[in-house]
Design a protein around this nucleic acid. Structure first.
Lengths: 366, 366
DNA sequence: TTGAAAGCGCTAACAT
DNA sequence: ATGTTAGCGCTTTCAA
């Protein structure tokens, strides 16, 4: 009998964990027959499979995924990299990813990156664990990361971020269009002194939202919006709001690059300064996830279709796994402006869709 | 040359992923020397290790954790089961778990359970993936789950839940004491008509908080608190609050079994009914995580020491991994009552600690 | 359809 | 300190 290692790792109560060999012996078949019985579409007779399944049940046998991974070179694990779970958008995304990948037989391995920092520190762990693919949300991608994953054959899909690299797929909401819609909405609502709160400087998402907003205002003859930075952080967003609202020419419309910062802004404007948000100042966010929908906030925000985005991520990932030569896909999803009470609305253009007030910009006149 | 499987899984750009063999060949040593060079505390000469590391660098070699797991019977993966990430307490816990286990060389695999449902559906996945241990937060444990994990030698540690089973470790906050403290706080604040909002019926956490609250009130001659159930769900908590506050004898103090429900209650009380929370009605929560600390809520709540709890979970898990025969530990951590504005405070007893207002019950007089 | 045999990439005795 | 060897538990040829 082979000696056990000093620290019996999974030894328990005398009974060893059953292997395919044990099952084979009990069922009176070969070990490969056991393997086949647990493989979708393998050629086994009904009778053999029955015997195997019965023996497996008796022994409490379960195929060892680690051993399977070693030979199939597929771990059934999807890595998910996220920077901060404080912004409720990301826990929601995580839930949806876990459910959607779970339905296709994958489990999620979570990798934490640091807000605003490179995600390189997680590279080693991602690669060592042989995840089948990596989904990055709220994390940015260095070119070294990109290259290493490509060499290792690990597909990377960005969610809510884009990159220039041709090899990296991404799924985003149409940030430009969303920001333009918000600008049009605020202008139609009679606002004149615009402001924008940026997230992180190197975030494609924040950049696109700023550009869309500023470009629309410029094209329609409005003054360039004031710009502050909240770095996607509640406290920093609150501080930026304080500074902005204490200034000489207080804006009457503030678009924040995400809901998390918009909620910080509302907390300062109403909670600290006693402003009537939605009348004295309008605050708009982007995401439509989390507390923004609560009555006390009533945050008007551009909604990202989380479920549809996650479905796209899963589809792209699986496509890439089935055909490693498949080209990178950059999917841009449509969103919609959810109208609540945190911003003074235009007199027209608001429609009710699926229990939610939506505003759509009127077609541009000639 | 052995034939490749039909679907080249990790094939890329011609270059195969380097194995320890490749490194050994390039470095001119045996493959076990390579293995040793990557193993903490193995006996290798400095010179050999240098050669190996250099060759590994050239080839971009990284030890394959799947292969290692197969032989060491340790996956370096900790399963974390969670039911709902909507309550910000859990994303915070998840972050802390990921960081703390990450520092000890473990990665987190996430398993989603359904709120209020059995966690049995994830059992198969947990066992197949050979996680080294399982941490369950906001999830309840069936006896079958317990037994199977024990047989498989997978230690289970509950976080924020307890169970009767002698084999299961748990880390909780002192729920009874917390609830008693809240009752004493509200009584000292002059409240007389008490109410309690429960979470899920089968949740040990909710039960303990209810018992502590009711027992203290009973012992001090107050009327039994009214009881409603929010099922840990925002919408259901909101509905329960509506029903409660529409009743004939409106309570002046409502203790909710967690912050998430307390925030729903505030949204209804202030946002829908226009009540002045903290003056006309006092609302207290339990957790101290997430939006409760925002100025607009100012939620008074019993704080769970998340970091300390997670540190305990990690310590217990590692202890159990080092010595599988170690006994189950049930750790009960002290919390503290964070005083903000959502409940009328007593005239005395509030102290400032680490920038946070804290209330401590006076010693019981004879 | 089935079994035998050859590994997947690594660790851990064991012998040197 | 180092190399040789024997697997870890499984999938997948290959022959029968």
């Amino acid at each position: 009998m082979p000696q056990r290692p000093a620290q019996p790792p999974a030894a328990e109560a005398g009974r060893r964990i059953a292997t395919a060999h044990d099952v084979a012996r009990l069922a009176g078949v070969s070990q490969s027959a056991v393997s086949r019985s647990f493989t979708e579409g393998a050629s086994v007779s009904a009778e053999t499979r029955r015997k195997v399944l019965e023996a497996a049940r008796q022994l409490g046998y379960r195929p060892n995924l680690v051993a399977r991974s070693l030979i199939t070179r597929r771990s059934s694990i999807i890595g998910v990299a996220m920077a901060y779970l404080e912004n409720q958008f990301y826990p929601s995304v995580l839930e949806a990813l876990s459910d959607a990948f779970g339905r296709r037989g994958y489990q999620i391995m979570l990798f934490r990156t640091r807000q605003g920092e490179s995600s390189d520190p997680i590279l080693e762990e991602v690669l060592r664990h042989k995840v089948d693919a990596l989904v990055m949300a709220s994390a940015s991608l260095s070119s070294r990361f990109d290259v290493e994953c490509q060499q290792a054959g690990v597909p990377v899909v960005l969610l809510n971020r884009r990159t220039e690299s041709a090899s990296i797929s991404s799924v985003t909401t149409d940030n430009r269009r969303g920001a333009e819609t918000i600008a049009a909405f605020l202008a139609a609502g009679g606002h004149r002194r615009f402001a924008f709160m940026a997230g992180l400087e190197n975030s494609s998402t924040s950049q696109e939202r700023q550009e869309g907003y500023a470009a629309w205002l410029r094209a329609h003859g409005f003054k360039e919006p004031a710009r502050i930075a909240g770095h996607y952080d509640f406290e920093r967003a609150a501080a930026a709001t304080r500074a902005l609202l204490a200034g000489p020419e207080r804006p009457d419309a503030l678009f924040c690059a995400n809901d998390h910062m918009a909620l910080a802004a509302i907390n300062v404007a109403r909670g600290e300064l006693g402003l009537d948000v939605g009348r004295e100042i309008s605050i708009v966010g982007f995401d439509n996830a989390g507390p923004g929908a609560w009555p006390l906030f009533g945050l008007t925000t551009y909604a990202q279709p989380i479920q549809a985005m996650v479905d796209q991520v899963v589809a792209i990932t699986c496509e890439r796994l089935a055909d490693p030569a498949a080209e990178a896909v950059r999917k841009v999803m449509p969103g919609s402006l959810a109208v609540r009470s945190s911003a003074r609305p235009p007199p027209t253009g608001i429609v009710l869709r699926q229990g939610q007030q939506i505003w759509e910009p009127p077609p541009e006149g000639p």
